[in-house]
Amino acid sequence: MFHEVGQPHGLPYNPFKSCVIPRPIGWITSVDTQGRVNLAPFSFFNALASEPPLVMISINGRHGGGGPSKDTLANCRETGEFVVNMATYALRDAVSATSGPLPTGESELDAAGLTAEPSQLVAPPRVAESPIHLECRVHQIIDLPSDNPDSRNTMVIGRVVGVHIRDDALTEDGRVDVEKIQPIARLGYQDYATVDRIWQLTRPKGGGDRTAEGR
């Protein structure tokens, strides 16, 4: 099949979100100017570079109506810091709970029964139950095009300034134990996935992402 974007595709659901998969989930803590903590998950999230380490969150939809994702954007604009907490299979129910609407200023951590843990270099706390955290400072906020006049698309680029990895999330040879911690990824629709098989591929010298060779 083929469909031109903006024209009917003839399917029961828009297939686009299931054509770029799997997408990691950025579980983001931020604070407002009063120090109130917000926590929200984002499935439009990824790493952008390694030197320096950069990550991006894309915040979509109605930006003016409150809710955890919109508070995230406001907090990033106002205070310029956020933390990425790894969303794992063991925490899947809490991740889902923190996507729900709460009045601005009410804590999604408290509502989901999570524990706030102080960060080292930024003001937003970490989710203590998560095995990996990336402390970030906002590098740039970019307004993106939107085909819906009632919605906005905004990308927040953060520079990672600190990395926390829980000791039991590492293998004996010092690698992140992905099979153990089981990060969750979005597949579109209401579908998610975890890593259950890891395999390696030797790449040509001098080609591709240097991180593929572990550097």
Rank of each mutant, 00 (worst) to 15 (best):
F2R: 13
V5P: 03
G6H: 09
H9C: 01
H9N: 02
H9Y: 06
Y13C: 11
P15V: 05
P15K: 04
S18C: 12
C19V: 04
V20E: 03
I25Y: 11
G26R: 03
V31A: 09
V31L: 14
Q34D: 14
Q34E: 14
R36V: 05
V37A: 00
N38G: 14
L39W: 10
L39V: 10
A47G: 09
A47M: 13
S50T: 13
P52T: 04
M56C: 06
I59W: 06
N60T: 14
G61V: 12
G61I: 07
G66N: 02
K70M: 05
K70P: 00
R77Q: 12
T79C: 14
E81M: 10
E81C: 01
V84L: 00
A94S: 15
A94N: 05
G100M: 14
P103V: 15
P103F: 08
G113K: 05
T115C: 02
A116V: 10
E117K: 05
E117D: 08
P118N: 09
P118E: 03
V122I: 11
A123E: 08
A123D: 08
A123M: 07
R126L: 07
E129R: 00
E129Q: 01
P131W: 02
I132W: 01
I132L: 05
L134N: 00
L134G: 00
L134D: 01
L134V: 05
E135H: 02
V138C: 03
Q140I: 00
I142F: 12
L144R: 11
P145K: 02
P145S: 11
S146W: 12
N148R: 15
P149H: 07
D150N: 05
I157L: 15
R159Q: 03
R159V: 04
V160I: 15
H164C: 04
D167T: 10
D168E: 14
A169T: 09
A169F: 05
L170K: 11
E172R: 15
E172V: 13
V176M: 13
V176T: 12
V176S: 10
E179H: 15
K180Y: 06
K180W: 06
P183W: 11
Y189K: 14
Y189M: 06
Q190L: 13
D191W: 11
A193S: 07
D196N: 10
R197L: 06
I198G: 08
W199T: 15
Q200E: 13
Q200S: 15
K205A: 09
G206V: 05
R215Q: 10
